[in-house]
Simulated assay, not measured.
Amino acid sequence: MTHPNTALWLPKPGAPFEVGPAPYTPPAAGEVVVRVRAVAVNPIDGLPGFLYRLALPWLAFPAVVGSDVAGEVVETGPGVTRLRPGDRVLGHAFGVDASRNRPAESAFQHYAVLLEHMTSPVPGSLPLPQAAVLPLALSTAATGLFQPDHLGLALPGAGPAERGETVLVWGASTSVGTNAVQLARNAGYRVLATSSPHNFDLVRSLGAAHAVDRNSPTAVAELLDLIGDGPLAGTLAIGAGSLRRTVPVAARATGSGRIASARPAVLTRVPGWLARWRGVRVSSIWGGTLKDNEVGPAVYTGFLPAALASGAYRAAPDALVVGHGLAAVPDALRELRKGVSARKLVVTL
């Protein structure tokens, strides 16, 4: 089975994107091909040339990038029984990951190859543009919360028992944060969140027990009062400046002194080293590692399909559709660099 394919190519680091023909790649064992209907954009997709070499030194050019996919399955590879052609799905595309590193597996094209165990059915009630906001942010949050090399928390499930432990999500109204709040809550943890006050209702609606102004000079003291004598199971730190505020909380609260940071490792190395002197361990999340361990399938096949269908999990934050067609993706990336709050920019295809 073949289909004419078109992709948004990045010829070399720092070069303008170009729309052009791309090969249709059939799925191998454990893979599916998805007709992409919507993609979301992320900061890593539009890095300046020198930062591409710093963040993704292995990336082969010309490249196709993009991680967030929603669309319909058109073909399944050997051994795939959970998904069928015609199924509406969302999935994390891993074309820029070091272990995959091929254009066929990236999002910004009409036909993308996805790993079956990192793909989830989408219920009919969920529009595909809204579904596209999930994959990279969901994977990043899940990696930080559940992998043993980060916080190592219990996995989410249906009707979880209350664990009597607290998880702190600093930056809860971000794409990663909105997913972290929901994942931690669906794993039975009490969630404390920080955000700007105008996003308090959002993070509470996703399951946070309390919200604290992240810009408040008393935020650390407020969080410590809310944690009280109960154990802190771990902290997810999202956004610039988050380690400076979360290390004092993790150092003084009872329980885990572990912080999983969504900032790149190069930016957390020195703060992480300094935090050790306060008994705090800081790790830096790479949102692609869960595909290679039990966390990926536990979230994308064991938890998410039923949770989306039942309403126990929301595709958040809200999608803002800013264009149609591959040629609109560079404009979306330029808009993203201006700053977006509690929304994710989406392009339909």
Score class of each variant (00 low, 15 high):
residue 141 A to I: 09
residue 188 G to A: 11
residue 119 T to V: 04
residue 181 V to F: 04
residue 111 Y to E: 14
residue 124 G to C: 13
residue 157 G to L: 06
residue 131 A to C: 06
residue 185 R to G: 07
residue 181 V to D: 03
residue 137 A to M: 05
residue 139 S to Y: 03
residue 182 Q to F: 03
residue 176 V to Y: 05
residue 129 P to S: 11
residue 174 T to G: 12
residue 124 G to Q: 03
residue 181 V to G: 01
residue 92 H to R: 09
residue 160 P to H: 04
residue 101 N to W: 10
residue 174 T to L: 06
residue 190 R to T: 15
residue 148 P to M: 01
residue 128 L to R: 02
residue 182 Q to W: 00
residue 175 S to E: 07
residue 176 V to D: 00
residue 122 V to F: 14
residue 178 T to V: 11
residue 94 F to H: 14
residue 105 E to Y: 13
residue 149 D to S: 11
residue 162 E to H: 04
residue 96 V to K: 13
residue 155 L to C: 02
residue 166 T to D: 04
residue 120 S to T: 00
residue 167 V to M: 01
residue 171 G to Q: 09
residue 108 F to K: 02
residue 145 L to Y: 00
residue 94 F to N: 12
residue 157 G to K: 15
residue 117 H to F: 06
residue 167 V to P: 02
residue 172 A to T: 02
residue 128 L to P: 03
residue 108 F to Y: 14
residue 187 A to P: 07
residue 157 G to W: 06
residue 120 S to Q: 13
residue 189 Y to N: 12
residue 178 T to M: 07
residue 105 E to N: 12
residue 121 P to C: 06
residue 123 P to F: 15
residue 140 T to R: 04
residue 125 S to M: 12
residue 136 L to C: 13
residue 116 E to M: 07
residue 160 P to R: 10
residue 107 A to L: 07
residue 160 P to W: 00
residue 180 A to W: 00
residue 110 H to L: 13
residue 116 E to N: 13
residue 131 A to K: 02
residue 186 N to R: 15
residue 112 A to L: 08
residue 164 G to N: 07
residue 122 V to W: 03
residue 169 V to G: 10
residue 100 R to I: 13
residue 180 A to C: 08
residue 164 G to Y: 12
residue 180 A to E: 09
residue 126 L to I: 03
residue 190 R to A: 15
residue 130 Q to R: 10
residue 147 Q to W: 03
residue 161 A to N: 07
residue 129 P to M: 08
residue 115 L to I: 13
residue 142 A to S: 08
residue 95 G to S: 14
residue 109 Q to W: 04
residue 109 Q to H: 03
residue 133 V to S: 09
residue 116 E to W: 05
residue 127 P to R: 01
residue 120 S to L: 05
residue 94 F to Y: 12
residue 144 G to T: 10
residue 184 A to L: 07
residue 112 A to T: 15
residue 127 P to V: 08
residue 179 N to Q: 13
residue 172 A to L: 06
residue 150 H to V: 02
residue 119 T to E: 01
residue 109 Q to S: 09
residue 116 E to L: 05
residue 102 R to M: 07
residue 135 P to Y: 00
residue 166 T to N: 12
residue 121 P to V: 05
residue 185 R to T: 15
residue 167 V to Y: 01
